[in-house]
Design a binder for these strands. Structure first.
Lengths: 235, 235
DNA sequence: ACCGGTCGGATTGTATACAATATTGTGTCC
DNA sequence: GGACACAATATTGTATACAATCCGACCGGT
């Protein structure tokens, strides 16, 4: 098992450190190829990547700390399933942090930064054209993280990174079909505001962008998700 | 080594899960008994707590994710040493998040919550009277976290928890002696504002409390705080 | 047939063994 | 005497072995 059977782990480049496995799992979750609730068996993952459970375990623990994965003692690791409450909290946090970051980004952005943002948007479009909505979603998340990075706030950027990750899970769980315009316009406008150094406008655009996103989710407290069998079966 | 030599690990109650080791190390760091830069050898820690390196490793990894510990490949784990830049970022983030949390806490606080906050302050005073400033500092941090919890924002409370942790390291590195009144008054006023449901006042008090704290640090860009031996010993 | 308990397989939790790497000490050459 | 090369040691990185726990199937009783 220690050998690397037929390129099963082509993703792993130099050293099979646990970060590689973590990144691969993280990307799969962000792209909705691993959906909330999926069991992540240690042996299985280890076999896929050609590493021992030691490595897999470290990767899962790290993902668990980012709340992408839920580890239950003696039960195993599962892709996390944020509750409605958590979903609302995540978006409240984003609405608190990200507009401020957008404003700072507009103040600090250098030409190279703007270019990078534009490239992100291009990649997003390309992914949509290639009928790869998972990849588009992941890139869209990276766009938001990039803005926090440009604002020169690595600490907050880290927070936003975990919020984006959980947002991906929330979208997987609570997205409502009908709204499909999917933000590429919003991102474009945001870049323009940042490019021209218009901080207040960038802040507003980010805020309304997040509100749009938030309202494209179905976070009503529907008592689906039956709280008790008695309630669920009383007909 | 698997046996438990002479109660060295009295801290560990039921199962020697890695969380116990993590908590013990975390408390020691918060109380400044482990200072920034200290090497955290895996064997040594394992021997102290009577667990194997597997457990220690998991604990260190978790602490590393909280940025209390810096793990360098093939080098080992060290208590983190936040740079001046990181220090400034941490306080900017706190000044963005915590006043908002204080306002929400004032809106949501139930009598039991207020009682818990008062108890925290009492414990803080007791620790100071007992000439245990480390414990007082740790309790002071828990006070801030508790406010975010009362605001019913578990996600943001988690962020603040890591910010508090890093603040503790920052205080260890950059605290300037002269300012010593050490916040107990500020906390008291804050609790009163929260108890009376005065959100705006709580927000203001928190903001100025953080500004006070921030300005009690010496975050000037002096090249002191010897980042490297080269700098430290060039005379 | 249904309910309960018990046994077996599978999976996770932990410890240990081995390999890889960095650091320190020593010796030799200039 | 000092600088470099090399060997010894210590520490971390990874894999594997073993123990503990859980889940499901089987089976006997009612």
């Amino acid at each position: 098992m220690t050998k690397n059977p037929t390129g099963a782990s082509a993703v792993l480049r130099d050293g099979p450190r646990f970060e590689s496995v973590e990144a691969a799992l993280s990307v799969a979750i962000h792209e909705h190829r691993l959906t909330p609730g999926t069991k992540l068996g240690e042996d299985e993952i280890g076999e896929i990547f050609g590493v021992s459970r030691t490595i897999v375990r470290a990767a899962l623990q790290s993902l668990s700390h980012s709340q992408l994965v839920d580890m239950r003692r003696n039960r195993g690791a599962f892709v996390a399933q944020p509750s409605l409450t958590e979903a609302r909290e995540v978006f409240e946090a984003r609405e608190l942090l990200e507009p401020r970051m957008a404003r700072s980004a507009a103040a600090f952005a250098k030409p190279a930064d703007v270019a990078r943002l534009r490239r992100h948007i291009n990649d997003e479009h390309a992914a949509l054209d290639a009928a790869d909505p998972g990849r588009a979603l992941r890139l869209s998340g990276m766009f938001h993280i990039e803005i926090a990075r440009i604002a020169d706030q690595a600490t907050i950027a880290g927070f936003i990174e975990t919020l984006i990750a959980r947002s991906s899970l929330i979208i997987a769980l609570y997205w409502r079909r009908q709204s499909a315009l999917c933000e590429s316009f919003a991102h474009h406008a945001l870049v323009e505001a940042i490019a021209t150094g218009d901080g207040p406008r960038a802040e507003d655009l980010m805020r309304s962008h997040l509100v749009d996103l938030h309202s494209a989710l179905d976070l009503r407290d529907r008592t689906t998700a039956p709280r008790s069998l008695r309630d669920a079966l009383r007909r």
